[in-house]
Write a protein that binds this DNA or RNA. Structure first.
Length: 284
DNA sequence: CCCCAGGTGGGAG
DNA sequence: CTCCCACCTGGG
């Protein structure tokens, strides 16, 4: 597999190495694997890439032979949400707990995945560890997705999943999630629902639809909306965030945590969630 | 061998 | 509405 010579992503955001890793491989996406110092290989949409961090904290990319570098550079910048000013969100934030987490992860970002990728990956994620989720998603891509470059597979679309024999999904080590995924794919196909439309829908309406899908509850719906549709008001509460919210704010239930986040963090709750998540996971 | 993990669904209380 | 536990599977 021949990669192009590395080229710098113009207008790449600045990353500290630790935040680069946390962003790509910290639970937002399950499609990246570390291949060396500050280097990750992975796939998003129909792009395969190796992403590197140069000495100035800028992202450089290598893409497979035959990939249009200019087009890929633009897509990678979008994927890294290059346009958004994250520092502004936490600068002068009134909550010192948020400021403290932001200081530990000053260049953390939210990846802009597609709704389709997020729906598939987060249905696979329930009650699993990151390494296991990555394995499932990778198997799913290998068995049902298109090979977009040698040994790089895109995720399958919902038609493919809907039509796949359940045994194939079982072979992806999905366990009980295999039925969730197949039922969800079938529903999306029969509804003629375009996942991309989630981006345009208001948060509540989008969430309502997602909750009608099999294997999608509050937590998974919020992950899909935050990581797959850039809805920053989404505040996914998993066990880590539950712990964090209990420790920092004495909030005992996911419901309380969501209500608090919506009220106190508002339109940027999702980013603050990611900071608190990274923080409590790094020193529990 | 036993236990649980970055949840959800469905039934009981 | 809130509990509670089964659900697959791999790894500790």
């Amino acid at each position: 597999m021949n990669f192009s010579v590395p080229f710098e992503i113009e207008n790449s955001p600045f990353f500290l190495p630790s935040d680069f890793k946390e962003t790509l491989d910290g639970g937002q996406s399950f499609r990246w694997r570390e291949v060396g110092e500050n280097a990750f290989e992975g796939v998003f949409e129909d792009i395969a890439a190796r992403l590197l961090l140069n000495g100035r904290g800028k992202v450089c990319a290598q893409v497979p032979e035959g990939f249009d570098q200019e087009k890929c550079a633009k897509k990678i910048a979008d994927f890294l949400d290059a346009e958004r000013d994250y520092a502004k969100i936490t600068k002068n934030h009134k909550d010192e707990r948020v400021v403290k987490a932001a200081k530990r992860f000053p260049t953390l970002r939210i990846l802009r995945q597609t709704p389709q990728e997020a729906i598939i990956c987060f249905i696979c994620s329930s009650s699993k560890r990151i390494v296991q989720i990555k394995q499932c998603v990778s198997l799913l891509s290998e068995k049902l997705g298109d090979e977009i470059a040698p040994n790089f597979h895109a995720l399958p679309n919902f038609e493919k999943i809907a039509d796949a024999p359940i045994e194939i999904l079982r072979d992806c080590k999905l366990g009980f999630r295999a039925d969730y995924l197949k039922r969800t794919a079938q529903k999306i196909v029969s509804d003629k629902f375009n996942p991309e439309s989630l981006r345009e829908m208001p948060y509540q309406e989008a969430k309502k639809y997602l909750l009608s899908l099999s294997g999608v509850g509050e937590k998974v719906a919020d992950c899909i909306l935050l990581f797959g549709a850039a809805k920053f008001e989404a505040f996914p509460v998993d066990t880590w965030i539950s712990k964090s919210m209990a420790a920092l704010y004495d909030l005992k239930t996911p419901k309380d945590a969501r209500a608090f986040a919506s009220k106190q963090f508002g339109a940027n709750a999702g980013y603050i969630q990611q900071l608190l998540f990274a923080d409590i996971r790094s020193n529990p």
